[in-house]
């Protein structure tokens, strides 16, 4: 779509939207938010870009094929489920790793990997749909 306002606004917005999607993603750890809603906002950013500059440009910006994103996302879902099996616990049991850095703690966990998988799947899925609709 040829519109100066849309092009300028998109350039400004896309970074903010992706940052916001990451914020939502990490907020989902303890509060409302998470991979699904974060992925939706992130996909919204790429959708906006696709509307402004076309799908070809968006594919270049995205660098990877969205279907690859879906498959990597699915793979991390399975992996997060399989990790606890190495310590002889059932599939999908949440395992946690606490790292203390003094002032702040870092909490790494299998639910985090699961959520990354959800994020990638949602972004990949919506961008695939938008691409095929735009290219129809």
């Amino acid at each position: 779509m040829k519109s100066l306002i849309l092009h300028t606004a998109t350039r400004l917005m896309i970074g903010i939207m992706i940052l916001f999607s990451l914020f939502l993603f990490f907020r989902g750890h303890d509060e409302p938010g998470g991979g699904f809603i974060g992925g939706l906002v992130g996909a919204g950013a790429f959708t906006l870009y696709a509307i402004a500059f076309g799908t070809e440009a968006t594919r270049k910006v995205l660098r990877v094929n969205p279907i690859t994103l879906i498959s990597i996302g699915l793979l991390s879902l399975v992996v997060s489920g399989l990790i606890p099996m190495f310590v002889a616990e059932p599939f999908l049991t949440g395992k946690w790793l606490f790292i203390e850095w003094g002032a702040v703690d870092t909490k790494l966990s299998t639910p985090l990997i699961f959520d990354i998988g959800v994020y990638l799947c949602v972004v990949g899925f919506i961008v695939t749909v938008i691409f095929s609709l735009e290219e129809e």
Binding site: I67, I70, S71, L74, L75, V78, G81, L82
Partner: peptide, 14 residues
């Protein structure tokens, strides 16, 4: 899990 992993790999190398 095995079919799911296979499916994702097949999707990755489609």
């Amino acid at each position: 899990a095995i079919p799911l992993i296979t499916a994702t790999l097949a999707l990755l190398f489609r």
